[in-house]
Amino acid sequence: MVAVTIANTLGAMQIGSTLAVFLFGIVTLQLDTYIQLFSDDKWFLKLTVATVWSLELAHTICVAAEAYRGTITFYGRIAAYQRYPLMGAATLLGGLITCVVQCFFCLRVWKALPNPLRYIGAVCGAAAIVRAIGSVFLGSRVIIAKTLAEYRQANGWLIRALLISGTSIDVIIAASMLYFLLKKRNSGFSTTTRLVDRLVAYTVRTGLLTSITAILVLVTFEVFPETFIWVGIYVFLAKLYSNSLLSA
């Protein structure tokens, strides 16, 4: 068992929150680019982007505020730092962000693939909504939990289930889009082929990035449960989803 220290508890959370704020800056830059270049998009897409950015703003505030509580408010009193209400709110918001982004890509799968393969998008979308409900429940449990150990012991199975399901949804969506793109590639001209190659590379990168990060959260949760290493990684997972949405 790894010894619990300031470095792998508050230090890990501080690093994770710093990365989260940095990625929120990238999301904001992406939003500015979107507004300038895609002002004629459909209202549904504009609403989706606005919703994700608003959720990200609230998520970032919660993550930064929780890091402040741990490092400043409870400075020198680490033993008293047992409750994490703002991290619970961030967990809840992160689940909603992930749901919106995954449903967006599920809708793409539904529109792109022929019957009956298009139902992959519908099934993944339903799974994403169920996963979001679980995330909201987890977030509420963090808010009322008296200690992180209590929360982890009571809800460890659900944390594992949500991380595994999120990774599975990402992989299935990416694989479905790759199937569609590769079929187009084989039937296209050279110019189209080059464009499809870029889309294939993008699909692989975005799907792998969120999946690998979710797996890292799961592994660190299992191997270093007493530390905050898994928390430090989890706090910026939602940002990667938002980055992938706005990149698309």
Rank of each mutant, 00 (worst) to 15 (best):
I164E: 11
L216G: 13
L86E: 13
L208H: 04
I233A: 05
K146I: 07
I97D: 00
L37Y: 13
L57V: 15
I233Y: 12
K146Y: 07
V223N: 09
A175F: 12
S190P: 05
E226M: 15
S176C: 03
C62G: 07
L138A: 05
T73P: 09
L209R: 14
C124S: 11
P114L: 02
E150R: 01
N155P: 05
F236L: 05
I172V: 15
W230R: 06
L92V: 06
P114T: 01
C106S: 11
L57Y: 06
A50N: 12
T98A: 15
N155L: 09
A145F: 00
F105L: 02
V49I: 11
A67C: 14
L23Q: 02
V4I: 15
L31N: 12
V63Y: 04
P225A: 00
V21Q: 08
R198Q: 14
M1N: 13
G121I: 00
T48N: 07
I229M: 05
A89G: 12
F224S: 14
A79T: 08
L181D: 06
A154T: 06
V171A: 09
S54G: 13
I229R: 00
L93P: 05
T51K: 00
V100R: 11
R108V: 08
V136N: 00
I173R: 10
T18L: 11
T167G: 15
I212C: 07
A3G: 14
L138C: 04
F22D: 07
V136P: 04
T147D: 04
T213K: 02
L19C: 14
C124L: 04
L86I: 05
L57S: 03
